[in-house]
Write a protein that binds this DNA or RNA. Structure first.
Lengths: 251, 251
DNA sequence: CGACTTTTTGAGTCTAGTCAAAACATGTGG
DNA sequence: CCACATGTTTTGACTAGACTCAAAAAGTCG
């Protein structure tokens, strides 16, 4: 089977894209702000500051004081935790419109993860104090933020379950599906997951190694479930992949 | 080394203990209510209803509609997720004063875990609607709840990291430490963890099996780190256990 | 004292990790 | 446009940690 040339097309991050217009749009789309009137959003917008970061750059480190809440305006950001032995565990990948950074900043907390730009990105940030003021002004916003965080907690617990009880192959299948629904783009033959997204990253997401991920992906490809190359994956048969994630073993 | 007879003494759950006085005390101690004046707490208390459950009874199931927020008044409750293959993953163990159940109830959500009484327990519950009303009345409470949930998210992510990168032995050591700091009681020779708490449970916490847990615990016992028996564990040397959890391998 | 449950131990097997090397892509500069 | 340098992915052989199955030992309770 001839392997297609890389379908990856990287988005440019034009600094000008962090323009006021664009910022308003991103901020106004956030689940916890989107119900607010334009006036309020404009006011909130003025409290955010933007930061351009290039691929690979760290936005903050695990252990740093958590002084800001961040928002991905453009680009992709990954959240990782490093183990004592230097191994990297990938907790989440965020795209435009996602927020990150701790909310529990009141009590002098520190970040529990490291945030790294996966692509050149434009990040918005707001100080904990300003964010608190927003929460105080808009009680309904706090409620929405609470829901968003609860949602993340549920997702994290789902991952705990998977790591506890599933085989590597099942975990990889699940990870691919999560990524597809979150970051995938429909293509003629399937759903393309394109980030600069390596086997390395998949390994860090599934608590595994590049070699094992590679082997599993080869098996998936043989079965016609996916097609993959350097830093991209296309999912051809989502249903069978889902089946596999639940029941295990390609057979 | 002679093994001590079981030091486990189970607490009685007297139904009368869910008296108004006791309820006020428990509710008033919750991190997100404790700053409120007695009057407000009394009012909140009137919105809670109590339920007595006996050991092993399920309080709700994964997939059930999330209509209530729960509060452990007395006893121990465990949160588990079941996999397709019937395996049980233990997510958390809760004691008196801990809350559980989903906060994201507005959008018609369902519970993502199953809650099981570990001992005979007295549980308080409040409907999602009533809880929302409290949040609306006390904006500062929402903020505290948000912090509490964020904290749990961080804990869950820590567990993801451990499952991803550590050996079973390290995970068991970590689990014991978590349990000790949360549920342990100081004893002459160390910290006693006493719940009806089996190897089975530890296996479900660490994504492992009873046999493997047993072997690891035997090794720990040989090294003088712990002493254990049927449904209880005493930690003798917390520092070395911590060391082990970080660096790995008893040696 | 039994009947029952939980824990421990043992032997065999398999999944996934490690180490090492080859194959492949991608971008660069001649 | 090609050849090379670099980083990524794949493949192979070997190993080890942890699971499974089976059975014995130790606690617990009526």
């Amino acid at each position: 089977m001839p392997r297609p040339k890389s379908p990856v097309r990287l988005e440019w991050v034009d600094p000008a894209i962090c323009s006021t217009d664009y910022r308003l749009k991103i901020i106004g789309r956030l689940p916890f702000f989107k119900h607010l009137p334009p006036g309020a959003i404009a006011k909130i917008n003025s409290l955010f500051h933007d930061v351009d970061v290039s691929a690979g750059e760290r936005i903050y480190f695990e252990g740093d004081e958590a002084e800001y809440l961040y928002l991905v305006a453009m680009g992709k950001v990954k959240l990782v935790r490093n183990t004592a032995s230097g191994r990297e565990v990938l907790l989440d990948i965020l795209r435009g419109g996602d927020y990150f950074g701790s909310f529990s900043t009141l009590s002098g907390r520190v970040h529990t993860e490291t945030a790294i730009a996966q692509t050149d990105s434009c990040i918005l940030r707001i100080s904990a104090g300003d964010f608190d003021r927003i929460l105080a002004d808009h009680t309904d916003v706090t409620r929405k933020v609470l829901e968003a965080v609860s949602q993340r907690l549920a997702e994290s617990q789902e991952i705990v379950k998977q790591l506890s009880a599933y085989t590597v192959e099942q975990r990889i299948a699940s990870a691919l599906m999560r990524l597809a629904s979150k970051l995938g783009e429909a293509r003629g033959e399937g759903v393309l997951i394109q980030l600069p997204f390596s086997r390395q990253d998949l390994a860090a997401m599934t608590g595994s190694t590049t070699e094992t991920v590679s082997r599993a992906m080869s098996r998936f490809a043989e079965e016609g479930l996916i097609r993959s190359g350097r830093k991209w994956v296309t999912i051809l048969n989502l249903n069978r992949l889902k089946e596999l994630a639940k029941r295990g073993a390609v057979n």
